[in-house]
Design a binder for these strands. Structure first.
Lengths: 230, 230
DNA sequence: AAGTGGTCTAGACCACTCA
DNA sequence: GAGTGGTCTAGACCACTTG
């Protein structure tokens, strides 16, 4: 029933990184020093670090060292912005916040984010445009408890990678579903398409590496023939 | 420059499984016996087996043993049939072959399957129906060299998992892209939709674990609101 | 040359499954 | 209780990077 040592070490290191003990991009101590510090063998420390590498928390480079990954950096954000051009590059749209609200979690949010009806969420609606023409509307819900003072932060709008990092949360692998839907009247107006026009729906729940449900996003895309998801 | 021992061992074991030395579902010898047979340490053999588990070639069960995974089995095929119901279950459509052709690879096939223009491919077109109504057309290209006598095999139609297994190829993680397209006149007729109707396009290249490009598939789906991709 | 992660070994003990 | 995979340790040596 006891959690394996290498996972306990992983948890401790992740907590330390999330708390900012080592900044994104900085190197962390070598295996031997860390294993002595935590009182485990080098092999156990290695296993913990290998897991963290597979979780995109650190990168290890032979002959150089182990470095904290900057989750707000472009390459990583690729995991969180699935719309691509045919050449594989991310679609670099301009995101504009439509409105931000704070309110009691409704039933669907409770289910997806494992909340109680008494919990509070932030809701952010935004539109992404490329060369001025809108191609995606986004509806995001985030538990308010995890993001104190979110609305007061300047630098808004920012994507979930940056927000999570600023609040000491490291993102894990999101759960994602793709489906098709039709434009509601409001969405149609934002996207400049006809009501009932077919849209691709991206539904994503992001979970932090310490097990918190961090974000639920539903994006509705009006994709042109030259874009794809991957 | 030398390939690490544990990868050499992995390669040898994968070749042995692909060749049918151990049948799908059967157990393989324990770590200690295997490590003695290959003249490596138990730790090295363990690492090879762990990699093979991550590649879905074997499953390891504490206290029981290590078992060859049947790639043609339902759970695994899930990786290769992305269309799901809202509850997560695979859409169990009935697939009907429209036509099968053999011919010289055209340019796009060469690019995707790393072939030369002189190579031969099989092309299979099929339609999937659920409760009689068509929802997906599929166009598959496979290098003829890798699948001798494909057309003579009975039991056709079968999906790529079963075909690959029968020809001693173990499938790795496919590359997949999702995009949107419009129904061509032919596709529209097969799917019973209007020409130019919006469709979801799944483009997938499957690579075997020994590095062969095994299949290129383009599926065009007419998804209803209750289905999604994942 | 010094320092880092990567590979490889050998062996002890634990946790689980099944007869 | 015998057999399996899972965890943990200790230490040697290799390959790569940097000053």
């Amino acid at each position: 029933m006891t959690r394996p040592l290498y996972l306990q070490v992983r948890d401790a290191l992740i907590e330390r990184i999330a708390a900012g003990a080592w900044k994104p991009g900085a190197s962390i101590p070598n295996e031997l020093d860390l294993s002595r510090e935590y009182g485990v063998s080098a092999g156990t420390m290695r296993k913990a670090l290998e897991i963290m590498e597979s979780e995109h928390v650190v990168v290890r480079k032979q002959g150089r060292g182990t470095y904290v990954i900057d989750q707000a950096t472009d390459e990583l954000r690729g995991r969180y912005t699935a719309v691509r051009h045919a050449n594989g590059a991310r679609v670099a749209g301009h995101v504009e916040i439509v409105d931000v609200m704070e309110g009691a979690a409704h039933e669907q949010e409770c289910e997806r984010l494992r909340l109680e009806l008494s919990d509070t969420v932030y809701r952010i609606r935004s539109v992404a445009r490329v060369a001025g023409s809108p191609y995606m509307v986004e509806q995001i819900s985030m538990p308010a408890r995890l993001f104190p003072d979110l609305l007061k932060t300047n630098g808004f709008p920012r994507d979930i990678s940056a927000i999570a990092q600023a609040h000491g949360k490291l993102l894990g692998k999101p759960e994602e579903r793709i489906s098709v839907g039709q434009a509601s009247p409001e969405v149609a107006e934002l996207l400049l398409v006809a009501p009932m026009a077919p849209l691709i729906v991206l539904d994503r729940v992001s979970i932090s590496l310490d097990g918190n449900f961090v974000e639920w996003r539903v994006a509705q895309c009006h994709l042109t023939a030259n874009c794809y998801l991957a």
